[in-house]
Amino acid sequence: MNLILAVILRLAVWLLLAPLLPGIINKVKAWVAGRRGPPVLQLYYDLAKLWRKGVVLSTLASPGFIAGPAVAWVALLGAAMLMPLGPGGTALSFRGDVLLLIYLLALARFCTAWAAMETGSAFEGMGAAREVSYAVLAEAAIVTAVLSLSVQTGSVSLVTMLSPSAGAGAVLLAAGLFTVLLAENCRVPFDDPNTHLELTMIHEVMVLDHSGPPLAAILHGASVKLLLFAVLLIQAVLPLGALSAPAAAGALVAGVLAVTVGVGLVESWLARLAFRRVPLLLTTAFLLCLFALLVAWKGGAK
């Protein structure tokens, strides 16, 4: 009974808090640009509106066009449920759950790409091609980051491996994971969520043809993914385990907010990279994680 309650509570946290993040990012961007900007809760309004709207389906699309976003959304929420929440621990933990998490993200990516290809639009094909291609390098970086956490703690399970040590390794890992966060969530400098030129988009162009509840599922899933990466980044870098429970919870929330504001600031100050430069940046993220791994290795050997 307790388990069910814990799962429901956790699910509620992820479901309800995730759409806050894009709102904060937009507010930060507006603030830097000296505008008032949309309300922080804008995504909630959008989701509620989309959920009630009808669906326009391309004549070419199969039922997979609607199933794809549903599967992706379940996969992202499943990944979120595996992620421990600071002092709250996790609902379910087993050895190797971190690999399941990575592959659930891959499942979500497959389904989004599948749904994009359904329409036969060249734009969406382009977006899907970019998404799956850049994921190759991002995946290498994530696995390296996970390996470095694993080396640090000698564990392959998320609950125990997210107890990092401070030092040079943490800085490198933070930089690497932050870059991966930007890439995986299609933020500047990899992709510009606010651009109006479809030729330069990745994620947004993949969902051009979606509407109504499936689009709501996609947008909500994207916000869950952003929150997931922020939580992962904070827990991989800040030693929350050493703090008392309330302090750790506070630190987690503050950290996630800081990451979100950071994303907003990056988006305000940087321009989107040319696509041919993206692999270079992702390689840099991979190398940062790799050096974090080597530092962790050396630190443990002493």
Binding site: G54, V55, V56, L57, S58, T59, L60, A61, T119, G120, S121, A122, F123, E124, L208, D209
Partner: peptide, 8 residues
């Protein structure tokens, strides 16, 4: 649910 041409 409405069917239409791919928006593109």
């Amino acid at each position: 649910l409405r069917r239409g041409m791919t928006w593109d």
